[in-house]
């Protein structure tokens, strides 16, 4: 599995994905400039831009790498030769998954540092009313990594049953948007505004809320941007939720890949 992990990271590097990320990261240079346009929250705007850009680039990476990686190996028949070696299919899937997640973690670290440096330069000129809690900034990025690791597991699940890259990629995009708004939908059906909603619709939305991944739960940008103290118990619960959910999705992906005719 370690070899697969290493080969996956080397493959991503060989495809010059990191070069692409580096070019995209040049946009961070605009953070201090754009944040000066704010009337009253230069710091908050600088942090918003840095965290949003980081999250957006990680989303692109997760969808493209997660959706294409496994499918490409099968389509180009690399998987046939690799699986001809004394290697379990589960090790192959998990190795590739961990390779992609490691690359996402590496990218998040680099983008996080670059974003923090550019934000710091904006903050240095216009000091905020409330001190920035950089610890929250780190938590926000770390939980973004977990969120996209969960998304990659879904892309892998779709890859194991798909013969094209459409299902893994578009499936991952759809599940990301649905999972990001599931908490909003759940809050709505439990609010007085939804009193007129049919009980069956309420039950369906509630059931989907429990089944679908709650990507919104991994979003701690507000805490980082406005220096709102973290609820450490909540962080721990979110981490445990991630571990349980990703284990189930990857378990399903391994089962389906084991049963797949290659």
């Amino acid at each position: 599995m370690k070899n697969i992990l290493r080969i996956t990271i080397l493959g991503i590097m060989r495809d010059r994905v990191f070069h692409g990320i580096t070019v995209a990261a040049l946009v961070f240079g605009l953070v201090p400039v754009i944040s000066q346009l704010s009337m009253r929250q230069v710091t908050e705007l600088a942090l918003t831009l840095s965290l949003s850009l980081t999250s957006f680039l990680l989303l692109l990476l997760s969808v493209f790498l997660g959706g294409v990686s496994l499918w490409k190996d099968i389509d180009r028949r690399y998987a046939y030769s690799i699986l001809g070696l004394p290697l379990r299919r589960s090790d192959y899937v998990l190795g590739k998954y961990l390779g992609i997640v490691s690359f996402i973690l590496l990218t998040a670290t680099v983008l996080g540092i670059v974003g923090a440096l550019f934000s710091y330069s904006a903050i240095g000129v216009y000091p905020p009313n409330r001190p920035v809690l950089w610890e929250n900034y780190v938590y926000a990025i770390f939980f973004d990594v977990l969120k996209y690791a969960l998304l990659v597991s879904f892309a892998f699940l779709f890859s194991t049953i798909s013969t094209s890259f459409f299902l893994p990629m578009f499936g991952a995009v759809c599940i990301f948007f649905v999972g990001s708004s599931s908490q909003e939908a759940y809050n709505y059906v439990n609010s007085p505004e939804a009193a007129a909603l049919h009980p069956a619709a309420k039950s369906a939305i509630t059931a989907l809320y429990y089944v679908l991944p709650n990507f919104g739960a991994f979003d701690f940008k507000t805490n980082a941007i406005y220096s709102i103290p973290m609820d450490y118990q909540g962080l721990m619960l979110t981490f445990v939720y991630f571990c349980c959910y990703v284990s189930i999705v990857l378990g399903l992906a391994v089962i389906l890949f084991n049963r797949r005719q290659l």
Partner: peptide
Amino acid sequence: LRYVAADQKEFLAASVVLKVLI
């Protein structure tokens, strides 16, 4: 907008406010 903004709510809000300021 909250339903479609995913994790970019703060960014979207800041963008439209900046547009108003400009």
